[in-house]
């Protein structure tokens, strides 16, 4: 594993993203429309509903954004990657890129939700620590499932959602609980344990991703 190569992949993904401006702006628009839809559907959104809807919106934006990270790679570009890079470098690079992109989307959705609704976050540190760990977990799941569904024939978008959404439940449940504690919606003294557990899940998922990606990659 060579850090420079990983950086090269992250850079290349970013370049690709900006070259295909349509797809990039499409995702941004999708997020904004979802936020606006939430605003018009609820009119007033606060407390636990605010929290849950925020993460639901991030989840759906994330699926759409990350689905294309492998799906748009054809057989030729796979071959190109294969000759130049180690599979572990490819997956770490893509994971880092997806994490950064998902975090960007989260910040966008978050500000959208702050713009339209009153949030009431009491413990910023806990909120963003939980959010960061949760986003990392989500991006690992999405990266793996995108790699899986990228190899399938037929409707890859649907495959992506069907396979990844049930898997996100452990991360999502912890995420909602931690952020709800940070918003003082529920009082729980064991929230540190939840943060550690989320970190543990992230590590477990990352280990699985690294271990199993080789099998998805080789032909």
């Amino acid at each position: 594993m060579r850090p420079l190569k990983i950086a090269a992949i992250v850079r290349k993904e970013g370049m690709l993203e900006f070259r295909r401006k349509n797809a990039f702006y499409g995702i941004l628009l999708f997020c904004l429309v979802l936020v606006f839809l939430n605003y018009k559907a609820f009119n007033v959104l606060r407390g636990l509903e605010w929290d849950v809807m925020l993460w639901m919106t991030v989840l759906f934006c994330g699926i759409n954004a990350i689905a294309k990270s492998f799906i748009q790679d054809g057989a030729e570009s796979r071959l190109y990657y294969y000759t130049l890079f180690d599979p572990k470098e490819v997956v770490i690079g893509k994971l880092i890129y997806n994490f950064i992109f998902l975090s960007g989307l989260f910040i966008l959705v978050y500000w959208g939700f702050r713009f339209f609704f009153d949030a009431g976050i009491r413990r910023d540190g806990l909120f963003f620590a939980g959010a960061g760990l949760g986003l990392l977990g989500l991006s690992i799941i999405f990266t793996f499932i995108a790699a899986v569904s990228g190899r399938a024939e037929g409707n890859q978008g649907v495959m992506m959602s069907v396979m990844s959404l049930p898997l996100t439940l452990p991360v999502l449940l912890l995420l909602i609980k931690i952020t709800a504690v940070a918003m003082a919606l529920i009082t729980d003294t064991s929230v540190d344990g939840d943060v550690w557990m989320l970190l543990g899940i992230d590590l477990l998922l990352a280990g699985l991703l690294l271990l199993l990606f080789d099998f998805l990659w080789k032909d």
Binding site: V148, P170, L173, K177, M197, G200, L208, L212, F215, L216
Partner: peptide, 25 residues
Amino acid sequence: ARISASFSIFAFVALIPLVFIIPRL
């Protein structure tokens, strides 16, 4: 065979934490 085997392993292991999370919730 290869990809569905990887998916089933990933899915199985990824859901194991749920056994510990749900009681906490």
